[in-house]
Design a protein around this nucleic acid. Structure first.
Lengths: 211, 211
DNA sequence: TAGATTGTTAATCGATTAACAATC
DNA sequence: TAGATTGTTAATCGATTAACAATC
């Protein structure tokens, strides 16, 4: 409905930082903020801020700035944070368990409703009202529970197979922690969060500076 | 020493995928690979591959392609994976614990040599030969152990303070899991790995497709 | 030699930055 | 009104893609 021309990935990252900042402003009872204040707080230029907000369909007022709560509302809708989205974890190892109890699901509008593993010593485990099921149940549960997102935290060698299963079951988004580029149907979104890639990128960048 | 003009972030990401691919080729005893084979496997264009390798200072041979083991060597040096780099974890919660025992440290050339927390119920804990110390010891230990990288997995509200401590102690790189843009001296590298940001980005992108 | 593939420059595309007009 | 700030177009910068020469 909005005429948004598709924001760049970099722009989305900046707007996420902006949302954090605005929420803090709201806690401090601030009602307006200018582009240069935002830029300073976020370490980017004021022009960059205005461009981002312009593309978003901005709503600032000259001499006053932008309305904090209106912008929060705009960003929350942009990121689709208000709609409850049902999610599951596939692979209940250390990382899966660490995230199962986390508050970030709620922050992003997700509800964690199921977890799967193939290891029988893990299946049956309960954590925060989530019972771990056998991976063989995955198709039926995703359908029955209307799960639209799967977090994949299985070993790299199993990740593609899991991706095939969850997309076949109707999942529309994959949060992929395996260091693998997944092949999925074009209507499925994959967000890669491989920690291994992050760590290697850090190693690379540290070297550059050291040179 | 290499004349590298600084590869773009996107290029580094592609080259990481390439390294995985090459290591698989090596396991399969393949010795050569062409840019179009690489492109197909990685889902990018062959030209893009050649450009990346050109900037890297490439070494392919017309009609033959690139030498697998030579390219692996080049990439491992590019990412600085061979040199052992000493690292610590600050904040030994669920996420910190999940990563402490992980194999990714080794894959990226890091050695995890210390962990810190401020919670007395966690301090003293041992995991994989790492004993968790009180955060008050952080300055001395980083110096004594020549730690050059700190993984920060503390709550967002404490992250900046921790960043100040570790940079004061001489750390050159921070792997930041807190959803905060850290302010650090210019010679310190920060790689952001906030899972919250990844999850929000996924939510945003899912919405776009759904429209 | 002919043909396939890389190396390298040029063209295109997109994102950021600059400039300035519009507005409160 | 004057001045500060946003809205919006134009210019710059950088990354990707295309073109083709060099090479085995």
């Amino acid at each position: 409905m909005t005429k948004s021309k598709e924001l760049s990935k970099a722009s989305v990252a900046r707007l996420q930082l902006l949302l954090e900042l605005l929420e803090q402003c709201e806690r401090e009872q601030r009602q307006q903020i200018t582009s240069s204040e935002i830029g300073e707080a976020l370490g980017i230029s004021a022009v960059n801020v205005r461009q981002d907000l312009f593309r978003l369909g901005s709503a600032g007022r000259p001499r006053v700035g932008y309305d904090v709560s209106h912008l929060i509302d705009l960003l929350r809708r942009l990121f689709d944070l208000n709609r409850p989205k049902r999610a599951c974890i596939v692979g209940f190892g250390n990382l899966g368990r660490a995230l199962a109890g986390s508050r970030i699901w709620d922050k992003a509008g997700y509800q964690l409703v199921a977890a799967f593993d193939k290891d029988s010593s893990v299946v049956g485990m309960e954590l925060d009202s989530i019972r771990v099921r056998n991976i063989s149940e995955i198709f039926g549960v995703i359908r029955a529970e209307s799960i639209e997102m799967a977090m994949i935290t299985v070993p790299a060698s199993a990740a593609q197979e899991v991706a095939n299963m969850v997309t076949a079951a109707g999942v529309k988004a994959i949060w992929n922690f395996a260091p693998v580029k997944l092949q999925v149907p074009t209507n499925v979104v994959v967000e890669n969060q491989s920690l291994a890639w992050g760590l290697v990128a850090l190693s690379h960048r540290t070297k550059q500076v050291g040179d």
